[in-house]
């Protein structure tokens, strides 16, 4: 199964994502942001980093990259799309996920392991986990403070779109939200980095259950 890992100018987690996906049996390859053909892929990952320097707002410029036009149709086809950290910010700016990520409460860049609690197993990222399961996964962001209006929050709850919550909210995110999905559950964004939690030798292997779920959800193109 082929996974496209999109590289924007300023992405910096693409090789971590590539390595993690390949380790789990997928066949991952890099896709340049100026490409506009995703047809060959069974899933797409938008990795972390600082696409286009995060100028204006994180994701504000990246959402207009040619690949993003193709990603809208790709997501609508039901194939899995995962945005990690900066990738999550790009997905919200592009309107593929609701709400927005803004500056952390306290204006601190946060780089540390956090405990997440699985809130829904309906998404492609959490199908193999169980509700209430605790996962220790690193965060590494300045703008991870999930924000949305009351109507959007009610809709997220009503459609079981809150995928992961922080056990101890580090950044001021509404309702402790660390990750959400679209209504269909095939587009997921999260601020923590599961691709950096693949081995106990490096601190945690709790990212595996999430990325295994993602790889297991790939839909043959």
């Amino acid at each position: 199964m082929r996974v496209g890992v999109v590289v924007f100018p300023g992405s910096n987690c693409e090789y971590d994502a590539l390595g993690a996906l390949n380790e789990l049996g997928a066949s991952a390859e890099l896709v340049w942001h100026a490409d506009s053909d995703l047809d060959a892929f069974d899933g797409v990952v938008l990795p972390g980093g600082f696409a286009h320097g995060d100028y204006l707002r994180p994701g504000a410029i990246a959402r207009f990259s040619p690949v993003m036009g193709a990603l809208g149709a790709f997501a609508a086809s039901g194939r899995p799309v995962l945005g990690i950290c900066n990738g999550f910010q790009v997905l919200t700016e592009a309107g593929l996920l609701p709400g927005a990520l803004q500056k952390n409460r306290g204006l601190t860049f946060l780089s540390m392991p956090v405990t997440l609690v699985v809130a829904s197993t309906r998404s492609v990222l959490t199908r193999g986990a169980r509700v209430g399961q605790e996962l220790v996964i690193p965060i590494n962001h300045f703008s991870g403070n999930y924000t949305c209006d009351d109507a959007t929050h009610a809709s997220l709850l009503a459609h079981d779109q809150i995928v992961l919550r922080y056990a101890d909210n580090p950044n001021g995110s509404r309702d402790d939200i660390a990750g959400i999905s679209n209504e269909a559950g095939n587009v997921v964004g999260l601020m923590p980095h599961p691709e950096r939690a693949m081995s106990t030798l490096l601190g945690s292997a709790d990212g595996r259950v999430l990325l295994e779920s993602f790889v297991g959800s790939l839909v043959r193109a």
Binding site: R105, T147, D149, G172
Partner: peptide
């Protein structure tokens, strides 16, 4: 500017 009702962490600081 941020819409009314949206938290402004920079302003709070």
């Amino acid at each position: 500017t941020l819409r009314a009702g949206i938290a402004d962490p920079e302003a709070a600081t």
